[in-house]
């Protein structure tokens, strides 16, 4: 009996496709929800700093005066929390994971290009401007 058991396994192995995904030759599998890396749309960011406050690993830095949004890719734990708190939804999760780096240089800086629409003057945060 043991022989037939083995024969069954052997035949199945010969007939079926290999399980291997052949990763570099074929693109890696991704699903619609996969967390790859955070992308920002600098033209919509109102630099409210919510993402910076809620980031559990303090990877994000928003400097309002210099209009800079900065993320350290080597610190970001892709938890999706910044995307959930963003009031203007200018952040989104891209499916592509961030690539391997050859030096400790994960910092990426974006210049915020958002222009506040004309409104009666409101001080400081643009938090309520466009939410």
């Amino acid at each position: 009996m043991a022989f037939f058991e083995m024969a069954k396994t052997a035949i199945r192995t010969v007939v079926s496709r290999p399980a291997t995904l052949m990763y570099p030759a074929r693109p890696g599998k991704k699903t619609g929800l996969s967390r790859g890396h955070v992308v920002i749309d600098p033209s919509r960011c109102i630099s409210c700093g919510m993402c910076m406050k809620k980031c559990p690993s303090e990877a994000i830095c928003v400097e309002k005066d210099e209009r800079i949004w900065r993320i350290d890719r080597l610190r970001c734990v892709v938890c999706n929390s910044c995307i959930e708190v963003c009031p203007v939804k200018c952040l989104r999760m891209d499916l592509q994971y961030s690539p391997a780096l050859l030096s400790h240089s994960g910092l990426e800086t974006f210049l915020i290009t958002y222009v506040k629409p004309e409104r009666p003057k409101k001080s400081e945060t643009g938090e309520n401007a466009d939410a």
């Binding site: 910076m52 303090e58 830095c61 928003v62 400097e63 400790h104």
Partner: peptide
């Protein structure tokens, strides 16, 4: 240890 949220490096 470690630093505040906004720092270089």
């Amino acid at each position: 240890q470690g630093e505040g949220p906004c720092q270089e490096k």
